[in-house]
Computed example of a mutant assay.
Amino acid sequence: MINFVGTTKIETERLILRRLELTDIESVYNHWLSDERVTDNRISPAHTNISESKERLDKIIRDYSNKEFCYWGMELKTINILIGEIDLYNFDYATDNCEVSYSIGFNWWNQGYGTEALQAVVDFAFRQMNVHKISAAHNVDNPASGKIMHKVGMKQEGVIRHMIRNAKNQYKDCAVWGFLQEDYYKG
């Protein structure tokens, strides 16, 4: 059974994973939600104005009242700047499984922040929440995301053809990855 504790603060060597706040709106908009290089790897299109991001942020903040909501902003410890987001979602109560997704601003790609954040959230999910399995997927034309998943111990389970359709109305094949709690503890 999953032990839901909500979105609690998590610290890593270089990051603070924390709840988003309304004061984060400019970072959220400027660093990833309005950047097509980032949103090309997401289902939803790039935001064209800050009010779209504010609407999304308002909903996230409201959802923090639910203990089953696990959604963190990634903040760099050294300069207190928000660089991305990561969340656990789609909890299946019959299997105790869930999914994870993340987005990182382009300026911080290929610096290990995605791996660091994902490792922390995987640790949290398995150790604190007692999740049985974590799944994730990435567009096959975004292999960097797969490298992050591999580095934290996830195993690629296959490729699903035309799994999503992006904002440009293009179907994308996605690599699907999984990580079992028992494999996590085997190390």
Rank of each mutant, 00 (worst) to 15 (best):
F4D: 06
E11W: 06
E13K: 04
I16K: 05
I16S: 10
L17W: 03
L20K: 11
L20N: 11
L20G: 14
E21A: 09
L22R: 12
I25Q: 07
Y29C: 00
L33E: 01
L33Q: 07
S34F: 03
D35V: 03
N41T: 09
N41I: 04
I43Y: 08
I43T: 10
S44W: 08
P45L: 07
N49H: 14
I50V: 09
S53N: 11
K54Q: 10
R56S: 13
I61M: 05
I61F: 01
R62L: 06
N66Y: 05
K67F: 10
E68M: 07
C70A: 14
Y71K: 06
Y71W: 04
E75G: 13
E75D: 13
K77S: 12
K77P: 15
I79G: 03
N80V: 13
N80P: 02
I81E: 05
L88N: 02
N90M: 12
F91G: 02
D92Y: 07
A94Q: 15
D96H: 10
D96L: 08
C98G: 02
S103R: 06
S103E: 01
S103L: 08
Q111M: 14
G112A: 12
Y113W: 06
G114M: 06
T115Y: 11
E116R: 05
E116C: 03
V122L: 04
F124G: 00
R127Q: 13
Q128S: 15
M129E: 00
N130T: 08
V131T: 03
V131C: 02
V131W: 01
I134V: 14
A136N: 09
A136F: 02
A137P: 01
A137N: 09
N139Q: 12
V140G: 02
N142I: 05
I148P: 00
K151R: 11
G153N: 08
G153T: 03
K155F: 08
G158Y: 00
V159M: 10
R161G: 14
H162N: 14
M163N: 15
R165P: 00
Q170V: 02
D173T: 11
C174S: 15
V176E: 03
F179C: 11
E182P: 00
Y184F: 12
Y185R: 11
